[in-house]
């Protein structure tokens, strides 16, 4: 901040940043085995950046966990390898090997089965295997309606289930992280950030993100109303489908066969923000998973989805 501002109040981004750092430190101070879910997306990037700030000049007192469905974009894997090269970071990669053995994939099993087995079940496996009692997630309350009521410290029972009607009251900035053995808390340090805040912060702080967020010529096919990028040769093309080079980017990143692209010329962060301000649909629109029922996210979360 500049000197003239030093004497005055915090800006909204400074306030959000301080709140998130407070939450991250609270977890480090009160849990025995916390872990930070690291999805490689922009929210994860911000969350990791905040965690590094929280413990600077020390190192993160918890590992990162990437639940790998094996169907992420190649650019995401390259990005993950760059981030994991930091000797101060401890990154755990978990794959649901049972799912791999059964060759579960988005094409033959559909998005619902694939997401459940390779993401939701895989996450539960990893959390139980390592005995994590707290897991940070990058979810924001502005993303989706059912998230608007989620606590910052969100209780999960032994089966990792969320009970939206029976949440612990959460007052002031005093968080209750007490759990019995086997129970856990999902922690959302970015609860109060919006998509706009996230991009502004990435721009301001110079945080590295996966290049897929920026527009480039990429091969795509149109499928079920979504523009799907043909990222590798595992993607079976339907009769009559030919990948077409288009200038596209992604607003959210997930499994490449399930993530819709948007046509765009935005090649810098300010241009992304500009496009977002002019956008007519929310970022989750590009997610095949959200389309089933309007409260589908609520149901998924009750089952243990992040």
């Amino acid at each position: 901040m500049s000197d003239d501002r030093a004497a005055t109040r915090l800006t909204h981004l400074e306030a959000l940043e301080a709140e998130s750092i407070h939450i991250i430190r609270e977890v480090a101070a009160t849990f025995e085995h916390p872990v930070m879910l690291y999805s490689l997306g922009k929210d994860s990037a911000v969350m990791l950046h905040l965690a590094k700030k929280a413990f600077y000049p020390g190192r993160l007192p918890f590992p990162l966990l990437h639940v790998d469905t094996t169907w992420k974009f190649r650019d995401m894997y390259a990005y993950r390898d760059r981030i994991a090269a930091d000797p101060d970071l401890d990154l755990i990669v978990h794959v649901n090997e049972e799912g791999v053995a059964q060759n579960v994939n988005p094409f033959s099993h559909g998005s619902a089965v694939h997401t459940d087995i390779m993401k939701t079940q895989a996450l539960k496996q990893a959390l139980s295997e390592h005995g994590f009692d707290a897991a940070f997630g990058g979810a924001r309350r502005d993303e989706e309606r059912s998230r608007a009521k989620e606590r910052v410290f969100s209780f999960r029972d032994r089966q990792h289930r969320w009970d939206p009607k029976n949440q612990r009251p959460e007052l002031w900035n005093i968080y209750n992280g007490r759990v019995h053995a086997g129970e856990s808390i999902r922690v959302f340090p970015l609860s109060n950030w919006t998509e706009l805040d996230v991009w502004q912060y990435i721009d301001l702080e110079g945080i590295e993100v996966v290049p897929l967020y920026l527009a480039a010529e990429r091969p795509v096919v149109e499928r079920d109303g979504l523009m799907i990028m043909v990222d590798d040769d595992r993607m079976p093309l339907e009769p009559g489908e030919t990948p077409e080079m288009k200038r596209i980017r992604f607003r959210t990143l997930g499994c490449y066969p399930l993530t819709g692209a948007v046509e765009s010329d935005a090649v810098t962060l300010p241009e992304i923000i500009r496009e977002m301000l002019l956008a007519r649909s929310s970022e989750r629109q590009g997610r095949a998973i959200d389309k089933d029922a309007s409260a589908s996210m609520e149901q998924k979360k009750q089952q243990g989805y992040f």
Binding site: I83, I202, D203, I207, E208, V209, P211, Y213, L214, L269
Partner: peptide
Amino acid sequence: NTGAVKST
């Protein structure tokens, strides 16, 4: 402003 800063 390219979003591609080396984290180090």
